[in-house]
Design a protein around this nucleic acid. Sequence first.
DNA 1: GGTTAGCAGATTGGATCCAATATTCAAATG
DNA 2: CATTTGAATATTGGATCCAATCTGCTAACC
Lengths: 220, 220
Amino acid sequence: MTEAFVRPPTAQEAVLTEIRRLLVTGELAPGTPVRQEAVAERLGVSRVPVREALKVLEGEGHVVYAAHRGYVVAELSVDDLTEVYRLRELLEAEAIRVAVPRLDAATIESIGAASRAVEAAGRRGDLAEMTAYNRDFHFLLFDAAGMPRLSRTLRQLWDATDVYRAVYFAGSGNRTRVQHDHAEMVDALRARDVRAAIAVQKRHRDASVEAVTAAITADD
Amino acid sequence: MTEAFVRPPTAQEAVLTEIRRLLVTGELAPGTPVRQEAVAERLGVSRVPVREALKVLEGEGHVVYAAHRGYVVAELSVDDLTEVYRLRELLEAEAIRVAVPRLDAATIESIGAASRAVEAAGRRGDLAEMTAYNRDFHFLLFDAAGMPRLSRTLRQLWDATDVYRAVYFAGSGNRTRVQHDHAEMVDALRARDVRAAIAVQKRHRDASVEAVTAAITADD
DNA sequence: GGTTAGCAGATTGGATCCAATATTCAAATG
DNA sequence: CATTTGAATATTGGATCCAATCTGCTAACC
């Protein structure tokens, strides 16, 4: 079977992925207004699909909306960040508690593969791929809990800080730390050790919140 | 100062509140497709604001969307329900832990007032107002935690089961139980007793999940 | 007879045009 | 000189029209 060619079935979807890309790469920086006309022209579509895509992003909290004034890229305060990570702590612990006893060998293998993919991308210095595979690594585990709404909520929380995630991977010191944490996590999963897995995830997250906080407070 | 006259600044907003009303009253029942043209005609607007409102509702999980096939009112399985209540348990406990020590007398008074409003609406037999004031009662407390993202996530979870909430209030036995629980909660808040408040909330929620589960499984 | 091709009808997706609102800036007024 | 009023411009919100896609049915074919 050849690689399926996926044309987005709708323009809104194409617009959505493109705006997301602009957000994570920082081309649309927090605080800047989003001109519908500009986005539409750039992507060669009309303003209608742009507006629908922006409504989705509004729901996810990536942009804030005011009637007749339009959309602005959301800014994340340190308080917001602290809150996001606290909620992640509560919900990721739950996901791990439920998922670990249910894990099969194949899933653990997939998680290990994602870890190696993060490493490979890191050696190539490809930050975008690193963050993508890192996300795979964690959500393969979370999704294994079989709680779709929990997964969805966690994705929203991860999305909220995605803008700043690349910052974390930029430091090579952080990169080796990530590798180490991921390896520990896979060991804990193989041993079906819930407590250890939660502890690793917490350390992992704490290191990240520290780096991102530094990044946010830096450019004020 | 006279009562401010609030005209919805945009049609999408008006459409949004109207569709929400149709959802909670059950006029748009779970599983039924949402015809854009029908909604638009009913509200005297074009399909454009309807589509944008539906995108918001999609983000909130009230409708599910498939490209070129349109929107369908979301159905809630028992598994979904169990998950929603489990997540509420985790997050409401956090909200109460943070909020209770921060509560001032005025907020506690407002919560008490909301409780009396629920009771009054109950005596009138007005289910819609009961659910509204009940929501006020709980979110006055949750919001007091000063964690906007937590409040938002909790609102999403409450929204997801809103369709079935009226069922719970319909039974007069449940109504007196709610009054009793609310009174106990106010006592716990006055005493600044976090453990008691969390325990009351849990009992309150468990009773609700039982009633709603019964309602869901009934009509299958 | 069961399966598939193809043709209406219905419904959604997108583009264009017009209306409503907000913003900016200059001029008039105290 | 500060304030405010008003017009011009930019931007968003909504309506209408056309295109693309899906659905259900009929008929041809194996």
